[in-house]
Amino acid sequence: MTRVSPPGSLLAAQDLRKAYGPTTALDGADFSIHPGEVVAVMGPSGSGKSTLLHCLAGIVTPDSGSITYNGHELATMSDAQRSALRRSEFGFVFQFGQLVPELTCVENVALPLRLNGTSRKEAERAALRWMERLEVDDLRKKRPGEVSGGQGQRVAVARALVTGPRVLFADEPTGALDSLNGERVMGLLTEAARSTNAAVVLVTHEARVAAYSDREVVVRDGRSRDMERAI
């Protein structure tokens, strides 16, 4: 069976396979996403959702299969090139443990810009703009340990968006939050992504979080199933 990624997709993957030792994480998964699209990746624990996300983001190299971003094959890129891609084109939000505890919130948000070589002042100015948008600008001087989970997660979203990424990867972004805070984070995240026409790959096992997506892809036993196209 030959699989072709749908035309016009920003990021597409075909027939991804990845094993960690004896454990098969991906067993022929496909994926594609268009600019401005929010796609939920769902599935039971251990089904390979996170691995799919890591492969798509170029964090993990799949054993086989192809991933194209904007027409470029990720497999042919060097580690440094993929890192640079992640710095400039992608944004990331994880469940927890992602904010550097020593840095203040605004420094955390500014970090990706600074990694790209933006001056500290400019980076922090841009960071503050995003923090305002995510309604956490009053936390700028606080350290991550001093803010609540929801606030921290919104800071993380601001950090993910500060570079103006084309693709935002969110791995269980509300996993550690209660429903109200989760909703708030999701609302702000999707709104911000839509306003910048960024694609969002949203890994979640929560239906109400997935409900913020445009469509969902179900991963089960390392295989993906695109529900919209299946019907």
Partner: peptide, 19 residues
């Protein structure tokens, strides 16, 4: 499993509309 996936998709569609 297909039945469940299809159903879930339908549910999600409903949830999206509500959201």
């Amino acid at each position: 499993a297909d039945i469940l996936d299809t159903q879930r998709s339908e549910h999600l569609r409903g949830m999206r509309i509500l959201t």
